[in-house]
Design a protein around this nucleic acid. Structure first.
Lengths: 334, 334
DNA sequence: CCCGCCCTTGCAATCGGTTGCAAAAACAAC
DNA sequence: GTTGTTTTTGCAACCGATTGCAAGGGCGGG
């Protein structure tokens, strides 16, 4: 039933090699042969088997896209961009959902079985060691949204989380907030740790207190804020480690009768689409998701090309997006 | 560098066939040989190449997951469940993003190139013809969230959209609403058409008016509701063709000073996670996403097994989820 | 101890392409 | 027309597995 190279060769009256070459850009084929082959292929509806070709060339054009974050809406945007970016380059994403198990071994085995050209780990909650496991298994791997270290063990693309923390601190300080606090994602996530460290570092006064939600999700943000409110009055303003967390916190605050930004200020991080929805109007720090993903794909391909490549870190600057959950800047003194 | 079957055979001191058989459940191997092979494989860190095996067996365990809906948050849940469901069965999702182009030909070619075992089209906006294109190309295809017809051209799994429309109509009528309207997604989407038809069918009075947002998205729902409000006062209640649309409409209504459910009622469809978030509390009709996805996978596998299978439709019942965007039922008359 | 049967095993062909190599063809220059 | 050079082309081996077939080995029964 399926049409193979042999069928095309037979019909075009040429050898199998000729057909193969006609489909290989840059191979040595005369215009005449190519025309014959293309015609035969069209008539037969031939599509070369990527599997068979991968077997000899060693390249599958398959990219493993690994994530554990299927509850943060920002990841829908992330998947959208990854899949489109890969498709534009003629690559195919093989999606791996790590939600059930954080054990790398299983996914390593399966990605090796399919001999993916490269793996992209898209997660801000997985430790650097995780991506390392892929590397040690001989896979070309890039960690997107990971922790950016001086001497990374695998290439990392993302933002300078500490710098974002400082930006949040300065933003709050400039608006005259005094008693501020941090509400982060899981304490074990490197992104949480770095954002907090930067926040404390950039804050002019005593280190602000910190609380941690159990996950990067609405429910977790809401629950943690509720717990916090039960223990006492809220701070004047919160830096939340993530937008969806901010929204959860926001809902808890408003339910408890606090006006935002009248009584309490909130600043998030990500600028996911939803943050701009009317009704939320979340002031936040934008993470340039598109640029991060484009760079991740580029790095992954470079690494696939040259496995000995020195791991490098690519950082992208974040920008403040002012909306309506912080009080405005005081008018400049005359 | 990569370990192959030959290496294992050499090390275990057996033939390549023996190794292959040791990894094939049900093949004829003695316990002794199997032990030798397993030991050698373990020591070498051998993982059989799925590609090579696919070449001879004709099965790749790759499933094409095709969607064009990367802006409706409910699809993050959908992807989560699909990937997990497939992984549990030892299958791998090859994700295809159709956002750029609605032309099936391109994606058909690429899915054939990778000889996926089956394709699942997950979309409520693509026409039945779309999945048909896959089928005609000889691919085993199932349409998830598609239109459920009496004699489907490809297997379809989803809900009875017309029944949902009727349920919405009855729900609104029971609460004493009189002037109601429909706010749907793209008019061309079959889901929109069927929901509207059912809504009108189930409505006791004159057919309610209908409006259509340009997409299943927050922005589109909000824009359409704003346009509607500019033209005159709102209806007493709206049946929105989708939750995210409802949220957009809700935000437009509240911005315009209307209280929900005080002034206007809203009922959605899907019951995505976000619908339950505090602050939204959307009354909606729940679509059993988990069951639909499980059935889709089952059907896809059956079809892959037996390509001649008669296409069938699997419908799942929806249930009303009462939250806070409709006025309560009137107390029963004594 | 011999025979027959069944379970194991290895050989070799196959899946659908790719590619190095050498022969053949095309072309240019003389 | 001959010679030399550059393309084009086909042959055949190979990528890493699977599998039908026939030979080999183990085992029970006589």
């Amino acid at each position: 039933m399926p049409v193979t190279l042999k069928d095309v060769a037979l019909r075009a009256g040429v050898s199998r090699s000729a057909v193969s070459r006609a489909f290989t850009p840059g191979a040595s084929v005369s215009a005449k042969t190519r025309a014959k082959v293309e015609r035969a292929a069209r008539e037969l509806g031939y599509a070369p088997s990527a599997l068979a070709s991968a077997l000899s060339t060693g390249r599958t054009k398959l990219i493993g896209l690994v994530s554990n974050n299927f509850h943060n809406p920002v990841f829908l945007e992330v998947f959208d961009r990854f899949t489109r970016g890969l498709q534009e380059r003629g690559l195919r994403p093989l999606l791996v959902n790590l939600s059930d198990e954080t054990d790398a071994a299983q996914s390593v085995r399966m990605l090796r079985q399919y001999s993916v050209d490269a793996v992209i780990v898209a997660s801000s909650t997985l430790p650097p060691d995780f991506a390392l496991a892929y590397r040690e298994a001989g896979l070309a791997v890039v960690h997107s949204f990971g922790r950016c270290e001086q001497h990374p063990v695998v290439p990392v693309v993302g933002i300078d989380n500490a710098a974002c923390g400082r930006m949040a601190a300065q933003t709050l300080a400039a608006r005259g907030y005094r008693r501020v606090a941090f509400l982060g994602g899981p304490e074990s996530a490197t992104s949480t740790q770095d954002r907090l460290a930067g926040f404390r570092d950039g804050w002019p006064g005593a280190p602000p207190p910190a609380r941690f939600a159990s996950a990067y999700s609405f429910a977790a943000g809401r629950a943690e804020m509720q717990r916090l409110l039960r223990e006492g009055p809220p701070a004047e303003a919160y830096f939340c480690g993530d937008d969806v967390l901010s929204l959860g916190a926001l809902s808890a605050l408003r339910d408890a009768g606090y006006d935002v930004p009248g009584d309490v200020g909130v600043i998030g991080l990500n600028d996911m689409e939803m943050a701009g929805w009317a009704g939320f109007d979340l002031t936040t720090i934008r993470q340039p998701v598109g640029a991060i993903i484009a760079a991740s794909i580029d790095l992954a391909l470079m690494l696939a090309e040259d496995p000995a490549m020195q791991p490098e870190t690519r950082l992208f600057p974040c920008t403040l997006i002012e909306r309506a959950t912080l009080r405005p800047l005081p008018a400049a003194a005359p």
